[in-house]
Design a protein around this nucleic acid. Sequence first.
DNA 1: TTTAGTCATGCATTTATTGCATGGCTTGCA
DNA 2: TGCAAGCCATGCAATAAATGCATGACTAAA
Lengths: 325, 325
Amino acid sequence: MELKWVKDFLALSAMGNFRIAAQQRSVSQPAFSRRIQALEAWIGAPLFDRVRQPSQLTQAGRLFLPRAREIADLANTAKQDVRALVLEDKERMRFSTISSLAQTFLPPWLKSLQSFIVADQFVVKTEYGTIADYFSALEDNSVDFFICYEDPNNRLQMNDSVFQSLKLANETLVPVISPDDQGAPRCWLPDRPSKPIPCLHTLTKGSPSPVRYHMETKYSHLTFKSVYESSIALTLKVMAIEGFGLAWVPIAFVADDLAAGRLVRAAEPADDLVVDIVIYRCAKITEPRVEKLWKVLMRQQNGQTVCDQNKVERMRCRPASDSYL
Amino acid sequence: MELKWVKDFLALSAMGNFRIAAQQRSVSQPAFSRRIQALEAWIGAPLFDRVRQPSQLTQAGRLFLPRAREIADLANTAKQDVRALVLEDKERMRFSTISSLAQTFLPPWLKSLQSFIVADQFVVKTEYGTIADYFSALEDNSVDFFICYEDPNNRLQMNDSVFQSLKLANETLVPVISPDDQGAPRCWLPDRPSKPIPCLHTLTKGSPSPVRYHMETKYSHLTFKSVYESSIALTLKVMAIEGFGLAWVPIAFVADDLAAGRLVRAAEPADDLVVDIVIYRCAKITEPRVEKLWKVLMRQQNGQTVCDQNKVERMRCRPASDSYL
DNA sequence: TTTAGTCATGCATTTATTGCATGGCTTGCA
DNA sequence: TGCAAGCCATGCAATAAATGCATGACTAAA
């Protein structure tokens, strides 16, 4: 049975005339007649009484009519619902990241992506607990990408046949502190003050933290005391200006404050922490929008410009989704 | 969209393997693959993830699955229900008649029909009020045939382009009465007794009654008094034997009682009432089973035997219903 | 690296669908 | 009563779709 036969039936039951119903269905009258006969053959009963004019439903036809409507409605609704979901899902790029990157790096970066990819909505999730949680979410397709800081000297060591990664950028984190009355830093690395050095952190709660690692390795002889933690990275700068302690903050973030003297460096520039911003994906997830972005990022990494993509690399999970649109 | 695509989808979702599902659906694997792709094209989204083995439903596929089941169930149920109705209707021959014929003529006559027609069920309705009701029921397709007595001298005068009729048989109604002590009839027609002649009738309530007509025309100089009416024709004989009065009864009915002297004739044999048993149909109703029986009856009327019916007369309301079985 | 299995595609054949021309039938009108 | 108009069905040829066979691209396991 074909859905178009059911729709033909509905048209004929409404119009009572083969020629007019055929016209409405955009087929010739003989073709229409055969389709109605095909439906009647499938059903196993005549559905229309042709002797009388206009054609009227038989008892079988009257019994079939509400069911025909339901079949047609159900098929159309199913199609529409599935399409709606696909469109919704197609247009959502889902990222997970640590909150500081969510607030600093991602907004301008996502903005820059918009000339390369089609996505109406970006979803940025920051609520995962541990590093394992972030990667699990990639694996079970809850998110498409995970973006994080990664110390070049302390790679995450993920299995790169399962999780592929690309470096998006790097960032210089400069240790800053409020100046004393004379404009000098309240402490200087790697000098060892008599008291523990108060320091400010973004909330990382089980997440990878190049800053912590840096502190724990480069300044292992010093004692630090965490006096402030917040999931809102911008507040670290403000708190540092207020004199609460030392913080590693992206240099671009505080350039003006350093120039104005509101903050001062707490170490030599050579001691700045340069970290990579790395994006991860799960290799098994081959959805078209994920593949598309990955290609863009790989080209960016290799210094390529985005070229004409008429010859797209062949991928599994065919037929290619573009053919649906 | 084709129903077989939906069934293919359901098979694949159950089995997770194109080759095995194709086998189960009795098509080759390439054909099966194309059908799944055709459904995906119609839906507008991939329904299966082929990268992983076994093939798994995508999110779109999971959304479509319950709907696919419902579409398939609805289509199959609709077909079955309509077919059940058609089979039920096809196997029911619906007659209306007066109660005396229902109890006397029809049972053996229907028995004799069974070698000519296929009908699991005969429906005999006797509850119509007037002659007009019987014919209305024909016209609105509540019954297929109406069978009644018809006096050859007093035809029903129906419009025979609307209501076609055939004579099935004739019947001799003989006036009988119980004998007196000497074995003579208690009254004799057309003698006029001093008192009204008690007579017995089948309940005809607005129905055509050749017997009443006969009494009213042939014996218009006599006075009759109806002393018994019953819808059960057989009781007339019993009541006549008990001496309640005169009754016109089918001769075949009382042959034994006449021979045994339990009943005697109340008139000369020339005065027996010979009536036709006539069957009517509505010409507009062209349902196959009605046409079929009519042909059988016409052949019987013309003395033909039922011949091979490979060349059936062409009828409207095609395709011929036989093609459905 | 090789093998086995999965699903997709090119190609030729088969089957189905379609539109055109036309026919059988019914109804309405002159 | 005959004719015309309109309805739906069917024969035929052309077109389109569906199918199976052969084979290829790819992945996973040995």
